[in-house]
Design a binder for these strands. Sequence first.
DNA 1: ATGCCTATTTCCAATAGA
Length: 257
Amino acid sequence: MRFATWNVNSVKARLPRLLDWLAGTAPDVVCLQETKVAADGFPEKEVAELGYGTAAYGQGRWNGVAILSRIGLDDVRHGFAGEPGYPGPEARAVSARCGGIRFMSVYVPNGRTPEDPHYTYKLQWLAALRDALVPDLAAGPLVVAGDYNVAPTDADVWDVTVFAGSTHVTPPERAALAAIRDIGLADVPARPLKGDHPFTYWDYRAGMFHQNKGMRIDLVYGSAEVAGRVSDAYVDREARKGKGPSDHAPIVVDLTD
DNA sequence: ATGCCTATTTCCAATAGA
């Protein structure tokens, strides 16, 4: 099985690239984030022509997550039990069972600044996610993949001194990720196709991608059963090149059957 | 060359992203 996660930064704006990438990469399951469309605006017909079923959870202008699968898509859930809102629900998590594994696509709140109420919301959201994953993990193989908006270590940003006082690197955010791993989820390491760091995000501005000044904030967390089946995982930086890319690159994971 | 920000919207200028 091949699965992937990708923050596409608008599925409408990215549709031609998404379709080309699906055809070329041929993943069985894809977790998408920042689709930025309501459920009725998702290009289900276009991905169906490539053989994918869709579970989309969207709200329009911001956020929006989806799972595409060509190996079945059952028991779809929007959000998770106890998920906080700001103040109301936001479309940041969707899960479904595909090929014997429960996949959850997550788009963790950005947090803006450590002083902002959105930062408190981010920490609460991660804590609630951890609690909600405990029963999911007990139920069977699990993958929680997406844009976590946290760089787990100092090596996961291009220059840690630049991030002093910023979100994404603070100890409470990293502790929230560690708490999620501690219930029994492993960080599936992805190899970079170039350079020493498997960055997944590069700011559009100032040629950051071309200087490889990026961040590793998109992550794949898998249960032990899944982690034990990983035969390869890589960041597809090719998808960050060229005209009209997302600012995030996909992570592609191969599992032995 | 990979090439110097992008996507959204009842306000097309303001907001958000990280």
